[in-house]
Simulated assay, not measured.
Amino acid sequence: MKPGRRAALILLILMSVFLLLNTPLVWKWMYPIKFQQEIVTASNKYNVDPYLILAVIRSESSFKTDRVSKKGAVGLMQIMPDTAAWIVQQAGFKPKDNQYLYDPVMNIHIGTWYLNFLLERYEGDLVKVIAAYNAGPGKVSGWLSNEQWSGQREHIEDIPFGETRQYVQRVLYYHDRYKKVYGKDLQ
């Protein structure tokens, strides 16, 4: 095969692969949604963007209901048991048993209630909410009042904790990606 034809064939193959990878079906395979109905229900009930819930779940557990972190966070939305107990008391949830954080429905409702709580506390500022979900609202409020971090997306690199900094970047990435892939399909 002549070099010119070989280059054209390679270019054609590369373009075909690119077009194949750039289809909605492939994007939805790369960014799946599990527990969609539960997420939409909690989103509507607690007035939280469903793409934020998805991004948190994807970042925290990759949709694995039995995930437990090294620090003890449990379930889809990786909720610390002490935080969950506080939320259950504040929100008036009635868990069936002491394993409720492993129940995807309960975990999604508790995590989404907490996201709503943080959204109210930080006046809807998504970046601060995501940071507080990871590090805790006390830490984030301290960083803001001590001017260690401005709270702005453009200054994520100033977040004092590397884990929180990477977490915020990851959740924002997944939030943007899910929103782009699914558009209004999730509403």
Rank of each mutant, 00 (worst) to 15 (best):
V48P: 11
L54C: 10
L54R: 00
L54I: 06
R58M: 14
R58S: 11
S59G: 14
S61Y: 00
F63D: 04
K64Q: 14
T65Q: 14
D66Y: 14
D66S: 15
R67H: 10
R67A: 15
R67W: 00
S69M: 04
S69E: 07
K71D: 15
G75R: 00
G75W: 05
M80C: 00
T83I: 02
T83M: 01
T83N: 04
T83G: 11
A84M: 00
A84V: 01
W86P: 00
W86V: 03
I87L: 04
V88P: 14
V88T: 06
Q89V: 03
Q90H: 05
F93T: 05
F93A: 11
K94G: 09
K94D: 12
P95G: 08
K96T: 08
K96H: 09
D97S: 11
Q99S: 12
Y100H: 12
Y100S: 11
P104C: 11
P104H: 10
V105T: 14
M106W: 07
M106G: 09
H109G: 12
G111R: 08
G111H: 05
T112R: 08
T112C: 09
L115E: 11
F117R: 02
F117G: 06
L118Y: 10
L119S: 14
R121G: 04
Y122Q: 03
G124V: 00
G124W: 00
L126D: 08
L126V: 12
V127W: 02
K128P: 09
I130R: 02
N134G: 08
A135E: 09
G136L: 03
P137K: 13
P137H: 15
G138D: 13
G138V: 07
G138S: 13
S141I: 03
S141E: 15
S141N: 15
G142C: 06
W143P: 13
W143A: 12
L144F: 04
S145V: 09
S145I: 08
S145K: 15
N146Q: 15
N146G: 09
E147T: 10
Q148F: 07
W149S: 12
S150A: 09
Q152N: 14
Q152Y: 13
E154Q: 06
E154H: 01
P160L: 06
G162E: 15
G162M: 03
T164D: 04
T164Q: 03
Q166A: 06
Q166T: 00
Y167C: 00
Y167T: 00
R170Q: 10
V171M: 01
V171C: 03
L172V: 01
Y173L: 05
Y174F: 15
R177Y: 08
R177I: 10
R177C: 03
R177H: 07
Y178T: 02
Y178Q: 07
K179T: 11
